[in-house]
Amino acid sequence: MLQSVREQGGKADPPSYGEVNHEHRAQNGSRVRRLTNSANDDWAALVKRVHLEKDRTAFAAIFEHFAPRVKAFLIRSGSGPSVAEECTQEVMATLWQKAHLFDPSRASVSTWIYTIARNKKIDVLRRQRRPEPEDLPWGPEQEPDLADVVTLQQESDRLAKALADLPEKQRILIEKAYFGELSHSEIAEETGLPLGTIKSRIRLALERLRHAMK
């Protein structure tokens, strides 16, 4: 089941990753095809194009890859197929509208899309408000360091692999937590997830951001 984490982690484009990619290779123009099979940091570049250039081709490539996954996530979280379809379109539209707030030195594109989908889930499925922390945007003058961006995207890939390699029992517990089958009191106070490295990278990015905001 975690096989597709590797695929999404985006190791170039090995042909063995299943039929979905093959199909849409056949259907699409070469530019989109190349982009769709690119690595995590290239997804970040596409979001940047959506932000700066309102680039609809870039958006379409992101949509094609992520929308079916968001839809699956919402269905797995308890949504019916038609609600999931509608919500996924709204999630992707939010991505367009919030592209200026995406910080690739702190999150991969799949993580960022996950947070938008999660908020939609709370709004529509749980019918609750979602209190969100204050935003920490990079100003128009400053931008995250490219090396930080690349490292963070690599760490995201590594984390996905580490999760895939967890003992099955632990992995199932984490899946249950993320798909809404565990309450906060059912989650261990220390989860023992291998988050130390990615946390340090994000912490560093936050420090640079705070410095830039001064």
Binding site: M1, L2, S4, V5, E7, Q8, G9, V20, A60, F63, E64, F66, A67, P68, R69, V70, K71, A72, F73, I75, R76, P81, A84, E85, T88, Q89, R106, A107, S108, S110, T111, W112, I113, Y114, T115, A117, R118, P133, L136, E155, S156, L159, A160, L163, I174, E175, Y178, F179, L193, L195, I198, K199, S200, I202, R203, L206
Partner: peptide, 28 residues
């Protein structure tokens, strides 16, 4: 915040783990 965002990265990996479910033809 850094700890939260690393837990969100776990969610990002989870969403990649989901199988693809086709969107409707006119979804884009």
């Amino acid at each position: 915040r850094a700890r939260l965002e690393s837990f969100e990265a776990v969610g990002g990996a989870m969403i990649g783990e989901c199988e693809n479910i086709d969107m409707s033809e006119d979804a884009l």
